[in-house]
Nucleic acid binder design. Sequence first.
DNA 1: AAACCGGGGGC
DNA 2: GCCCCAGGTTT
Length: 343
Amino acid sequence: MTTGNPESLSEVDQQRLLEWFDGSSRNLPWRANPTPYRVWISEVMLQQTTVAACIPYFEKWMEAFPTVESLALADMKRVLVAWQGLGYYRRARNLHKAAQIINTQGWPPSLEGWKAMPGIGNYTAGAIASIALKLPTPTVDGNIKRVYARLTADQSSFSQLDKRAWKWAAKNLVSSRAGDWNQALMELGATLCRPLAPKCEACPLKSCCLAHRLGIVEQVPEKPVRKRAVELHLAAIVYWRVHHEELEIGLIQAEQSNWWEGMTIFPTQQLDQSLDQTEKPNAIGRVTHTVTHHKITFAVCLEQVHGKMSGVNFVRASALSELPMPSAHQKIWKLASKKLLDL
DNA sequence: AAACCGGGGGC
DNA sequence: GCCCCAGGTTT
């Protein structure tokens, strides 16, 4: 049993973690063949989603856009459809933008080169540089931050912790296996050193973990204060018509710098919070959608249209799935389509 | 339904 | 450094 200083891990502890990773790491599609393209796409997907949810998206993505060139030349709409359901759609736009840069300038050869790419920050650049380029670069994500905070019992505030975790990660990097080392720390954080109910007994680093020794594992790291969600009340209007004996739905494209830019959505109207607009005669119910720090309530209204409508594109209902529609509006469609089928 | 996690980027 | 982005999972 070593009880080394967690600020500066002993070689024995480092090897212990790497061996645990070698023996327990999951068989993930992007790990099998860690080319820059595959690591890049997987890392950006993983920024906001769990591993399990990412796997089918990653595999579909690689079929749709097998190379950076195919991504660079692809239609933005196709890219958004492939990303549909993952959320934070700006990331898909950034992937597309970066693909075009890479397609003309070549692959970034360094950490700094990756950091200059749109949508790539400190974490993702460090991950790609170490995993795909095999460069000895550290990285820090939420998992590594938590592992660091617990190992050293660092109870600093959330913003302080970030700086300290990066220092620690740089100091303790196993340079000869940087990619594996970074992934081992993240895997540890995701599977054992979890935010809630950590599995300390199974942890390869428990003998040098200060928080474990002090019995304060679940109190570290300090949780950031969260703001209450802002409530928004909107009416979502589902315009519909029968055209050539087919049901068609009126949709718009979210404008630049608006929510869900470039995605296909139902027209909405701001509502007075004090009014319960579901009382309106054409309202069929409500949909709630919580994102980041907004709680949106949509009063869904059906409205039949005869002929055209300016600013609204009518699309065959059966073709809706080919359009990039954010989850919130898919919920609206789910409610509206059920009602429309009853008519 | 409430609580929770999360990385990039603009300021 | 702080705050916003326009979400999903866990409890």
